[in-house]
């Protein structure tokens, strides 16, 4: 039962600011994903929570106690590293039980706890093996068991599945989510994969250039991005420049309602919010490419003004390459000065 609070946490590497002062509160049992591109500061923030980096300023509060200056070995946190970081000279049991041994636990108790942790990650029969005898997925399970066996207040995961193939990544992600829910352990999960974040997180913290861009549930982040960066980073998005005049803006062959002051703006539309209506040749947008993804089609259609629409439809919708369609948009967001200033959302 633990909460994590970050108050004005910042980090400078020399003259470079890796993290601007930021605040975040993570509730007990919550799984929060830190999502952002390389260099956004997400791993630095995770390492500050874990004690591997000292913050330049601010507080890291776990259950109200400031641990910002506490070394990792004395923090109630445990981290799963991207590269497994198993000790090759130890068996699986040795790796998982090492932390318990350091805590002076008796051997029978260590054996019981290690066995339970390995069973939880599905490696009950692998205790006597060495890491070199395991697959990548099994190694990462051992790394997870090594953390869970210590019953940390906060579990930290630094892109734990980045080195695994897609199929294994999806499976392990689900397993981790189930274990996390079962144990109710507060978890901070770093990833640069938007699908991973959307599928696993209770809340997502989108980061860019050392700043938090937006915090919200996966649904909020996806449907109500607050900045163009979030809109463009999460999922596919049509981002079109337009000039607003008298409460409206035209781009890509569509006139958008824009009840804001006249001037430049950015209009964002999700591909699945665009419908293609058959039209006469030369009107609307010409379909120049269709890619079949099985259940859905991804279409590119070029409007007369040169704007290219990315459209996603169900595979049963009849669309022909080279034919003309009139795009219709059910939902859009208008950004100005890097903030969302108007939304049209039928839901």
């Amino acid at each position: 039962m633990s909460t994590l609070e970050l108050e004005n946490v910042s980090k400078q590497f020399g003259a470079v600011s890796a993290l601007e002062p930021l605040a975040l509160r993570i509730a007990d049992g919550e799984l929060v994903c830190l999502l952002g591109p390389s260099g956004s500061g997400k791993s630095t923030l995770l390492r500050i929570i874990g004690g591997f980096e000292m913050p330049s300023g601010g507080k890291v509060l776990i259950d109200g106690a400031d641990v910002a200056r506490t070394p990792p070995e004395k923090r109630p946190t445990a981290m799963v590293f991207q590269s497994h970081a198993l000790w090759s000279h130890m068996t699986v049991e040795g790796n998982v039980g090492f932390g318990l041994k350091l805590r002076g636990m008796k051997k029978p108790d260590i054996t019981a706890k290690v066995g339970a942790a390995l069973n939880m990650v599905g490696l009950g029969d692998y205790g006597t093996r060495h890491p070199a005898q395991l697959s990548g997925g099994q190694r990462q399970r051992v790394a997870i068991a090594r953390c869970l066996v210590l019953e940390p207040k906060i579990l930290l995961m630094d892109e734990p599945f980045a080195s695994l193939d897609q199929h294994l990544r999806d499976r392990l992600r689900e397993e981790v989510r189930q274990i996390q829910k079962k144990l109710g352990i507060t978890t901070v999960f770093v990833t640069h994969g938007q699908d991973e974040a959307l599928s696993i997180a209770d809340r997502i913290v989108v980061m860019s250039m050392g700043r938090i861009e937006q915090v919200g549930t996966p649904a909020e982040i996806y449907t109500h991005p607050e900045t163009p960066f979030v809109a463009g980073f999460i999922g596919d998005m049509n981002m079109m420049k337009a000039t607003v005049q008298n409460g409206a803006a035209s781009t890509g062959g569509i006139r958008f309602e824009a009840p804001i002051a006249d001037g430049e703006a950015l209009i964002a539309v999700r591909p699945e919010d665009v419908t293609l209506i058959p039209s006469q040749d030369g009107e609307g947008a010409r379909v120049r490419r269709i890619v079949n993804y099985g259940a859905v089609l991804k279409i590119e259609a070029e409007a007369a003004d040169g704007a290219v629409w990315k459209v996603q439809t169900l595979k049963d919708v009849p669309v022909t390459e080279g034919a003309y369609y009139r795009p219709a948009v059910s939902r859009h967001i208008i950004f100005r000065d890097d903030r969302a200033v108007h939304r049209v959302d039928p839901s």
Binding site: F52, M79, A85, W87
Partner: peptide
């Protein structure tokens, strides 16, 4: 690797 040293610190090793 640095990570294996950090992992040892993480589980409580001085």
């Amino acid at each position: 690797s640095d990570a294996s040293i950090e992992a040892a610190r993480d589980v409580g090793a001085g």
